[in-house]
Design a protein around this nucleic acid. Structure first.
Length: 584
RNA sequence: CGGGGAGUGGCUCAGCCUGGUAGAGCACCUGGUUCGGGACCAGGGGGUCGGAGGUUCGAAUCCUCUCUCCCCGACCA
């Protein structure tokens, strides 16, 4: 029996000034967490109980497809040097030295450790497939921790890794995770959506994120209201409405026009009396390309419609860049011979193929087939009109490199797309052979031939499930969690604990609920009823039973936090009503 | 890393500009009255004013350096 009077549940009447998003404020006010440093938090009694419930669900579901391990937090640097990520992870990795001066790091993910196990232990196709998982604290030195538990430097992650003999096997492991993840998030009571995700520079063929819509989220999700398409903005595509072509002027060839001071798309469009969609936007980058162990910077110039924006994730993936940064003035002069504001496609030394030494020119597909557009002339205060892609300039690659916009057509059905903010709670990812190949994992197939196992990796952010749930379920007075992940199913509030009859009745109700299998918090504190009601509303427990006024008549009041509805029920019926409400 | 903001009792904040014995509300302790939506009265405890250096007879307050935290951006398997 958990008696509130004996517990440490430090609720706050006011939120600390540091907290901005709802989940951060309420996690602090409800006494779930306390901050130790930037992105570093202690989980107190209520917080830990909720985390434990989430972990239990994750473990139960994962055990249906995999085996739980617990891997080291501290990893030798050599292991990460083998995979190339000791330098590749950059500043996000916490590093330390032991007394001998040997470099180590705190695990930010466990591909290396898992692959090390695999290469040492797995010898035969008969041992495959394997799905190994763990629930472990991860450390990432985020450049900017924020929003309470949403982006932190230390957090609990369920991460799993599959090893299969071939791509068909990986498909199976991946699909199993997809289903188990859906089970997990459903059991946690989250309203979530699975979206296509960018596979990142690490390669890999297929990737899906599990997202929860909330304004506190950091990702943008493009989705079709009909439900037949959903993708991260980093990956999303869309159908465009046709554009009416501009009529050519003069002899129809590119015509130089003096456009003094017209350096923005809006200014140019106004000057030429056209819409921004008739203008060619030029965006010039330097891309860091890794060639073996060496990295070098190459020029990349992107052309898009004036009303579109560059999707740097797509562009970086296309040109195989680790990093993109805008060109500085000297680089613009060197590669385009023009100043910012007047850049354009005509007269560039266009690379025939990527990385051949000339400027990689990437044409957004929306410009293919367009005619007589307006573009910068690579000369201060001048633009061209009558610019037609293909006739007047060439490119290295034409591809989709733009961000989809709200209202554009769904790529499947054409309906207007919506864009919303969301938090990523899970990610499943086909890794392929990047680690197994590089780190020398080999097994024999049925023909006795050596093959490289193929991997998948799959993550779930435990705290993010809690955070996302709070973001979905809160009001001015606090929040309410689904019973499956709440620290307690129900709080029994004795309105006047100094009344021995009420105390006895409340204790009896709590005992009956516990006997029925519910997690019960008995609020027996010697506080005024108002204080206890406020606290109960605050701390995320989905149901409250008031033992007070009507108890002499054999009744108590049951309050459902999420709907604020209440009903009087007979004391003897309390457990049954809870069973009905929770479906247990 | 760039830009902005903030460090004064557990929490929210005032005081700083214009230097002169550190304050309020909430929280906490004691006593009393109250007791179904964050009660009231009386008394009380608790603060190196983030840190270091400097200016000054005197620094929370002015100057220099520094640390930490928050927000926007960059970043992000």
């Amino acid at each position: 029996m958990h008696r509130w009077s004996r517990l440490f549940i430090p609720t706050l009447r006011e939120a600390p000034a540091d907290a901005e998003v709802a989940s951060h404020k309420f996690l602090l006010r409800s006494g779930y967490i306390r901050q130790l440093g930037a992105g570093i938090y202690s989980y107190l009694f209520l917080g830990q109980r909720s985390i434990n419930k989430i972990v239990d669900i994750v473990r139960q579901e994962m055990d249906t497809i995999g085996q739980e391990f617990l891997l080291p937090t501290i990893h030798p640097a050599e292991l990460w040097e083998e995979s190339g990520r000791w330098t590749g992870m950059g500043q996000n990795m916490f590093r330390l030295q032991d007394r001998k001066g040997t470099w180590l790091c705190l695990g930010m993910t466990h591909e290396e450790v898992m692959t090390d196990l695999a290469r040492k232990e797995l010898r035969s196709y008969k041992q495959l497939p394997q799905i190994w998982y763990q629930i472990q604290t991860k450390f990432r030195d985020e450049p900017r921790p924020k929003a309470g538990l949403l982006r932190v430097r230390q957090f609990i992650m369920k991460d799993s890794y599959s090893f299969d003999i071939d791509a068909a096997g990986l498909d199976v492991s991946y699909t199993k995770h997809d289903q188990v993840y859906r089970n997990i998030f459903t059991r946690c009571g989250l309203s979530f959506v699975a979206v296509e995700a960018d596979s990142g520079a690490m390669g890999g063929s297929q990737s899906q994120e599990f997202m929860v819509y909330t304004d506190a989220g950091e990702d943008l999700i493009v989705s079709c209201p009909n439900g037949d398409y959903a993708a991260n903005l980093e990956k999303a595509t869309s159908q465009l409405a046709p554009i009416t072509e501009l009529a050519p002027t003069g002899d129809g060839k590119p015509e130089l026009v003096h456009t003094p001071g017209k350096a923005s798309i809006a200014d140019v469009a106004e000057f030429f009396q056209i819409s921004p969609a008739q203008d060619i936007k030029t965006v010039a980058y330097m891309a860091e390309v890794r060639d073996g162990k060496k990295a070098r910077w190459e020029p990349v110039v992107a052309f898009l419609r004036g009303d579109h924006s560059v999707n740097e994730t797509k562009l970086a993936g296309l040109v195989k860049a680790n990093e993109l940064r805008p060109m500085v003035a000297e680089e613009l002069e060197k590669y385009l011979s023009g100043p910012a504001g007047y850049l354009g496609p005509i007269g560039l030394k266009v690379a025939k193929s990527l990385h051949d030494g000339d400027v990689s020119v990437i044409l957004d597909k929306s410009l293919e087939g367009r005619e007589n557009m307006v573009a910068g002339a690579n000369k201060l205060d001048y633009h061209f009109r009558n610019v037609t892609p293909g006739r007047d300039f060439t490119w290295t690659i034409a591809a989709d490199i733009r961000n989809a916009l709200e209202g554009e057509g769904c790529p499947v059905c054409g309906s207007p797309l919506k864009i919303g903010k969301a938090v990523e709670v899970g990610h499943i990812f086909k890794l392929g052979q990047r680690y197994t190949e590089g780190m020398g994992s080999r097994v024999l197939d049925p023909n006795g031939k050596e093959v490289i196992p193929t991997m998948g990796c799959y993550g779930i952010g435990i705290e993010r499930i809690l955070t996302a749930s709070i973001e979905q379920n809160n009001d001015a007075n606090g929040f309410w969690l689904p019973p499956a992940i709440a620290p307690f199913d129900v709080v029994v509030t004795i309105t006047n604990a100094s009344d021995q009859n009420l105390l006895a009745a409340g204790t009896g109700v709590a005992e009956a609920l516990e006997a029925a299998g519910f997690d019960v918090l008995l609020d027996d504190r010697d506080e005024r009823a108002g204080v206890k009601f406020k606290d109960a509303d605050l701390v995320g427990i989905p149901y409250r039973i008031n033992v007070g006024k009507k108890t002499a008549e054999g009744k108590v009041e049951m309050v459902t936090r999420g709907t604020a509805s209440s009903e009087d029920i007979a004391i003897a019926e309390v457990a049954n009503v809870m069973r009905v409400k929770t479906g247990r």
